[in-house]
């Protein structure tokens, strides 16, 4: 079972990665990238790295990708970037939505009435916290300096030209 899933995810990652590289349309590239990132998250799940998989989904597939699409929408005025939804697309979307909803409902119903506490002694998040404030305290604190400096640099570059306004008080 795991092996089959692995090949499915690997195929997904590989094919969509090729799509990212080959596609000339930025929106298509973004969608392909989404499948790549999701596939990688699936591989993480198979490796029992749940935390990493969740982070992968939230940060990459969720945050970064939405940012890319927003960036495209806000800056690209080419007609190719627009969406004109066709009827059959609506049908497909509705079908996928229905499948997803039923899968979610089914999985919620199949949950045991009360989740058992994990007795295995593995608290990945706890260990992560201990590592961040233990062995890796210095890089952890250093990242905050990096972010501060980079944020100020980005704000400077994004800052509008105030010269005109300041010239005429």
């Amino acid at each position: 079972m795991t092996t089959v899933l692995f090949y499915i995810f690997a195929l997904l990652v590989a094919c969509s990665a090729i799509g990212v590289a080959v596609s000339r349309n930025i929106v298509r590239t973004a969608v392909c990238l989404f499948f790549t990132l999701t596939g990688v998250a699936g591989l993480y799940f198979l490796l029992n790295a749940e935390f990493l998989a969740a982070v992968q989904l939230v940060v990459y597939a969720g945050g970064t990708l939405i940012l890319i699409v927003f960036g495209v929408m806000l800056t690209n005025r080419l007609p190719s970037a627009g969406w004109d939804v066709k009827p059959w697309e609506k049908t497909v979307a509705l079908g996928i939505g229905a499948v997803l909803a039923s899968a979610l409902v089914a999985s919620i119903l199949s949950l045991p009435p009360r989740a058992q506490p994990d007795e295995s002694g593995a608290y990945p998040v706890l260990e992560l916290g201990a590592a961040l404030l233990g062995d890796y305290l210095l890089p952890f604190e250093l990242v905050s300096v990096v972010l501060l400096v980079v944020m100020i640099g980005a704000a400077y570059l994004a800052k509008g030209r105030r010269r005109n306004r300041e010239a005429q008080p």
């Binding site: 890796y136 210095l138 890089p139 250093l142 990242v143 300096v145 990096v146 400096v149 980079v150 640099g153 980005a154 400077y156 570059l157 030209r161």
Partner: peptide, 26 residues
């Protein structure tokens, strides 16, 4: 001599330099 630190400090040195290089915005 730590790989994580090496990457982090190289970025800390590089990222501000990029902005400094383009500091003349006009």
């Amino acid at each position: 001599t730590n790989l994580l630190m090496i990457f982090l400090v190289v970025e800390l040195a590089s990222l501000p330099s990029y902005v400094l290089a383009g500091f003349r915005k006009t």
